[in-house]
Computed example of a mutant assay.
Amino acid sequence: MGHPAKNRNVNDPAPPAPRRSGFGWLWLVLLALLAFAGWYGWRSWRSHEADARAQIVDAEQRVALIEESVNALRRDLRSQAQRQQQADATNRVLRDELLGIGQRAALLEDNVSKLADPDRHGAQALRVDEVEMLLTSAAQRLDLNSDLDGARRSYALAAGLLDGIDDPAYLSLRQTLAQERAALDAVGADPRSVAAGRLEVFAATLQSLPERASAIEPSRLPWWRRAFGRIVEVRPTQGSVIVETADRAAGLAALQLELTLARAALERRDAAGYRTALRRVDAWLTRLWPDSAERRARRDTVRRLQALPLSLRLPVLGTTLQQLRTLRGAR
C-alpha cells in the first residue's frame, strides 16, 4: 500500500499557486509616488512660469518709467535750450541798445563841442545844419515818391533859413537854391500823375468804340445784298476782329488786365513794364474793334501815352545840397 500523495491520480487538478500580495502593494506605492512627483513638478513649473511673467511685467514697468524719465529730461533740456536762446536774444538786444546809447551820447557830445566852438558861431551852425536837413529831405522826397509839393515846401523853408545867415560865403548858395527852386516850379505836375490821368481818360473812352465797321450806304450795295440783307448777315471769316460773344468777353477782360498792369507799372515808375503793357493794349484794340477812325485815334493815344516820361529829369536838382556840403567841408 503506497503513500497517499504518491497514489494521486494524474487527472486530478493541480493545487492553486500561492498569492503574491506583497508585489501588488509595491506597484501601487510606485504609481502613487510617480503621480505625486508629476503633480509636484507641474506645480513647480507653473510657479516658475508665474514668477517669470511677474518679472517680465515688472521689467516692462521699469522700462516704461525709465522712458518717462528720459522724455521728461528731454523736455527739460528743450525748455532749457529755449530759455537759453531767449536769454541770448535779450542779451543781443541789450547790447545793441547800449551801443546805440553810446553812439547817441557821442553824437550829442560832438554837437555840444561844435556849438561851444566860438569859431563856428553856434546859431549860424544850427541854421546851416537845418538847411542841410531840409535839402536832404527834399531830395529824398523827389527820389522816393516824386513829391513835388513836399520838395517845394522844403526848398522854401531852406531859402528862408539861408536868408537869415549874414555870412557872405553863403551868397552863391542862395543863388543856386533860387535857380533850383525856379526849375522845380517850372515842372508843374508830377509826370507820373499826368500819365496816370491820361491813362484813365483813355480807358474810359474805350467803351465808345464801335463794335462793327461803318455801314455802307444801301445805294452802293449790290442788288443781291440789298435783296437778302435783312435775311442773311454776311461776316468775313478771315478777319482778325473777334466776333463771338464769349471770345469778346475774354478779350475785354484781358484788355482790362493789361490796363491794370500799366497802372501798377506807373505806381512803381517802371517805364519798361508800362510801355510793354501799353503795347499789349494796342494789340487788343486791333482784335476787339474793327478798323475805324475812332480806333485809329485810340491807337494814336496809346502811342502818345507810351512816349510820356514817368520821372523827373532836372539836371539842377541836388546842386544846392552838394555845394553846401562842399562849402562846409572846406570851412
Rank of each mutant, 00 (worst) to 15 (best):
T245P: 13
R263H: 10
D282H: 11
E68S: 13
L73R: 09
L184F: 04
S47F: 03
Q140A: 12
P18S: 14
Y274W: 00
P210R: 09
R225I: 08
L317E: 08
R280N: 00
A227D: 07
V241R: 00
A158M: 03
E97W: 13
Q82S: 08
S311M: 14
S137L: 15
V93G: 02
D117P: 07
Y170F: 12
R198F: 12
L162N: 07
L26Q: 11
A156E: 00
I101C: 11
V128N: 08
A87R: 07
D282L: 13
G164D: 14
K114Q: 12
A123Y: 11
Q322N: 03
E267R: 03
R127M: 10
R19G: 03
Q306K: 15
A254K: 01
L26M: 05
L259Y: 05
L278A: 04
S47M: 03
E132G: 14
D143V: 05
D88S: 12
V131E: 04
V10P: 01
A264Y: 04
L206E: 02
H3I: 13
V63H: 15
L261V: 02
L257M: 13
I101K: 14
A72P: 03
V29G: 08
L266Q: 05
I165F: 01
S154M: 01
D149N: 14
L257P: 07
A52F: 00
G102F: 14
P13F: 03
G188K: 00
A227F: 04
A156Q: 08
R75D: 12
Q124L: 10
Q82L: 13
W224Y: 09
R120D: 09
D119M: 09
R19I: 02
W42E: 06
N9P: 04
D167K: 07
T260G: 15
R53K: 06
L135V: 08
A178C: 13
I56P: 01
H3G: 13
R74K: 15
N71R: 15
P4T: 07
V70P: 01
A64H: 06
S21G: 10
D163M: 10
L31H: 00
L177M: 12
I231Y: 00
F228P: 04
E233D: 10
R19V: 14
D166L: 02
A249K: 15
R230W: 09
D147R: 05
P15C: 09
N9D: 10
I56M: 13
N91P: 09
A213T: 05
D166K: 14
W42V: 00
A189E: 11
G102V: 11
S208R: 15
W289Y: 11
S137G: 13
L126V: 14
